[in-house]
C-alpha cells in the first residue's frame, strides 16, 4: 500500500517536472509562432512604402527596369525636388491649398464640436436629448444622400471652385463622432471645477474656454489628429467641388500628375512619399500624445 502511494507520488513528481519542461517549450514555440506571423504581416504591410521610397530615389530608367533592382544603383534624391517643382504641375500651390483647408477645418471642428459637446454634457435644457440623438443618428446617413442637394446649393450660391464647401460645414458641429467623443470626456470632469468658477462669477463660455478646453487636451488632440488625417487625405470632396487647377489639393494634383505623366513613376512615387510624410510625422508624434493623454486621464480618475 505504502509502496504504491510512494510510486504514485514519484510518478506524479516526475510527470510534473516533465509538464513544466513541456510547458516551457510550448511557451517558447508559442512566442516563435506569434513573432513569426506578426513579422510576416508587418513585412507585407510595410513593404509597399519601402518600395515607394526605393522607386522614388531611382533614375527614370532604373525605376522601370524589369526585373527591378531592389537597391538603387544610383541615388537620385533630386527626384523629390524635381517632382515637386515639375513645370506643368503646381505642387507648392497645391500643398498650400491643402494646408489652408486642413487648418480652417481643424479650427472649425475643434471650436464647434467642443462647444456643442459642452452644451450636451453640462447644461440641462428641454430638447437636449432629442438633438443629441439626432446628432448621433446622422452618422448612419450615407453622405451620398445629401451630396447632390449640397452640390446644387453650393453651386447656386457661387461656392463651386472655392474652398468654402470643404471648410465651412466643419464649423457647424464638426462631426457627430467628435461631439460624442468630447461629450464623453467632458462628462468625466468633476463638477466642483465648474461650481468654483461660478462662484467667482465666470460665465459658461469662460468655463468652456478657460477650464474645459485646457483640461481636455488629450481628447482634443485625438479629435484634431483624426480631423487632420481626414482632411489631408480627402479625395472625394475636392474632386466634387474644386474644378480649377489653381484650387487643387495635393490629392487631386497627384491624380492629375498620374493621368498626364503616368510613365514617370519615379516622380509619382516621390510625390506620394512627400504627401505621406506629414501623416507619418503626425502619427508618430501623436502616438506619444495618446500615451500622455491616457496617463493624464488615469491620474485624473
Amino acid at each position: 500500500m505504502s509502496t504504491l502511494t510512494g510510486s504514485v507520488t514519484q510518478a506524479a513528481q516526475s510527470s510534473a517536472s516533465h509538464y513544466r519542461r513541456l510547458r516551457q517549450r510550448n511557451r517558447r514555440l508559442h512566442a516563435v509562432i506569434v513573432y513569426g506571423l506578426l513579422a510576416v504581416a508587418s513585412f507585407v504591410f510595410i513593404m509597399p512604402f519601402v518600395w515607394m521610397l526605393l522607386t522614388a530615389i531611382k533614375s527614370a530608367q532604373e525605376a522601370v527596369y524589369f526585373p527591378p533592382t531592389i537597391i538603387p544603383r544610383e541615388l537620385h534624391l533630386s527626384n523629390f525636388v524635381e517632382a515637386w517643382t515639375h513645370e506643368r504641375m503646381q505642387f507648392p500651390l497645391w500643398t498650400w491649398n491643402t494646408v489652408y483647408i486642413s487648418a480652417v477645418v481643424l479650427v472649425g471642428v475643434l471650436l464647434s464640436s467642443s462647444l456643442c459637446a459642452y452644451g450636451f454634457a453640462r447644461i440641462r435644457f428641454p430638447g437636449r436629448d432629442f438633438w443629441f440623438l439626432a446628432t448621433i443618428a446622422s452618422v448612419m446617413l450615407p453622405p451620398q444622400v445629401t451630396l447632390i442637394p449640397l452640390y446644387v446649393f453650393f453651386f447656386k450660391i457661387g461656392w463651386l471652385n472655392t474652398f468654402h464647401p470643404l471648410t465651412i460645414p466643419a464649423w457647424f458641429g464638426g462631426g457627430a463622432l467628435n461631439i460624442f467623443l468630447l461629450r464623453q470626456f467632458f462628462l468625466q470632469l468633476p463638477a466642483e471645477l465648474e461650481d468654483a468658477a461660478y462662484i467667482d462669477g465666470a460665465s459658461r463660455l469662460q468655463i468652456w474656454w478657460r477650464i474645459f478646453l485646457p483640461l481636455s487636451l488629450p481628447a482634443l488632440l485625438t479629435v484634431a489628429i483624426f480631423t487632420f488625417q481626414g482632411t489631408w487625405n480627402d479625395f472625394f470632396g475636392p474632386l466634387i467641388y474644386l474644378t480649377g487647377r489653381d484650387k487643387y489639393t495635393l490629392a487631386l494634383g497627384m491624380n492629375l500628375f498620374n493621368s498626364q505623366y503616368g510613365a514617370e513613376i519615379h516622380y509619382m512615387m516621390a510625390i506620394a512619399f512627400l504627401m505621406t510624410i506629414p501623416m507619418i510625422v503626425v502619427f508618430f508624434v501623436a502616438q506619444r500624445y495618446f500615451v500622455g493623454g491616457i496617463v493624464l486621464t488615469g491620474v485624473n480618475r
Binding site: 464647434s112 452644451g119 458641429g173 464638426g174
Partner: peptide, 13 residues
C-alpha cells in the same frame, strides 16, 4: 444658453 452652445450642430443638422 444650452441652445446657444449646441447652435452649431443644430444649424449644421
Amino acid at each position: 444658453q444650452g441652445y446657444l452652445f449646441i447652435m452649431p450642430v443644430v444649424l449644421g443638422l
